[in-house]
């Protein structure tokens, strides 16, 4: 092994250079594989959805009609369900996971912290179909029997909580999604909190700040870039989640103001209807839905990058 570190003869140097070149191209090839794949997927989606785009145009995005019999398709109900269920998930999961992460990083005894952290990582490893089945058989009936009647009787004046409580629907989909993205946000947020230098935390406590103030005014601003990253990771996952949503969202092509109502998401529509879609326009419209999801996810990522860069600039100047 010693001769590897100090090449003596020119011949050996030569082979090393060759090896380097091969390695360079190999890694370059691997790196290009990803953009090529994304580009390929995008192109394929675009080509196969062309018939639908040609027929329905921009109207595809805003039309709530989804009628396989008359072959009239619009994505509005699917986009609506995707956005609303994701929104519910984010509203629930972000504060909750920040609170858990702060507790684990700051307040919990190390032993407890270790055990709970491992459990949270395990939560991330549960396959989404398990969440779906649990949602359908355990969680939705619970919502239907205990939570939704209570919401209807106390907040029933809001259109959000009207209609018969079915358990399944946009609401349960959003909550299940929150459970699913929580471990992702939580695990990263905990790491971010742990990275806050001890001196900064302790000086804040030393100045008489309460725990809440330390979290709100020191830890969160310090780790903001990382936290936003964590949130967007969860967001990306929530947008594309398929199986669990399909089980509990109720799969109805309808836009309803009530969170109790059944709805659908882009991913659940694809999962449900692709296998039996035979007519070319039907297939093309489903692929166009896929394209819409692809673009939404992509836009979210771009937005995340943009936000991160701006925040990074403004915050790194401050700290």
């Amino acid at each position: 092994m010693a001769d590897l570190a100090l090449p003596e003869t020119p011949a050996k140097t030569q082979t090393w250079r060759q090896g380097d070149v091969i390695f360079l191209w190999l890694s370059r090839g691997c790196a290009f594989l990803v953009p090529a794949l994304i580009g390929g997927i995008f192109l394929a989606l675009l080509i196969y959805s062309l018939p639908a785009i040609k027929k329905f145009g921009v109207g595809f995005l805003v039309s709530p009609e989804w009628n396989p019999v008359t072959q009239e398709f619009g994505a509005a109900s699917s986009i609506f369900g995707t956005v609303v269920s994701t929104l519910i998930a984010m509203l629930l999961a972000v504060p909750l996971s920040l609170a858990i992460a702060f507790f684990l990083a700051e307040l919990a005894p190390p032993k407890v912290s270790r055990v709970v952290s491992t459990l949270i990582e395990l939560l991330a490893a549960i396959p989404s179909i398990i969440f779906g089945m649990w949602g359908l058989f355990v969680f939705a009936p619970f919502l239907q029997a205990h939570v939704q009647p209570w919401l209807a009787s106390t907040l029933g004046f809001l259109p959000l909580f009207q209609g018969p409580p079915m358990g399944i629907g946009i609401m349960s989909a959003g909550i299940i999604l929150a459970f699913m993205i929580l471990p992702f946000i939580c695990a990263i947020a905990r790491d971010v909190f742990l990275l806050v230098p001890r001196t900064i935390r302790e000086s804040a406590f030393g100045m008489g700040a309460t725990t809440w103030e330390v979290m709100y005014k020191v830890m969160i601003p310090y780790g903001l870039v990382g936290l936003i990253g964590a949130v967007f990771l969860g967001l990306g996952r929530a947008l594309g989640e398929t199986m669990a949503i399909t089980f509990v969202i109720g799969n109805s092509h309808r836009i309803s103001a009530s969170l109790f109502a059944a709805g659908n998401s882009i991913a659940s529509t694809l999962a449900n209807e692709f296998a039996e879609a035979t007519e070319p326009m039907y297939v093309s419209s489903l692929i166009a839905l896929g394209l819409v999801l692809f673009l939404i996810t992509y836009l979210v990522q771009i937005l995340a990058q943009f936000l991160l860069r701006r925040l990074y600039r403004s915050w790194s100047a401050g700290l």
Partner: peptide
């Protein structure tokens, strides 16, 4: 409405289950 392997269900109060088992479990729960 018409006839099809999937149709536009006109009833405002409706939900869709995946597969026979999905429909069976929704009916049993609602």
């Amino acid at each position: 409405v018409g006839v099809g392997k999937s149709v536009k269900w006109p009833a405002p109060n409706s939900a869709g289950g995946k597969g026979n088992e999905g429909v069976a479990s929704y009916v049993k729960k609602v």
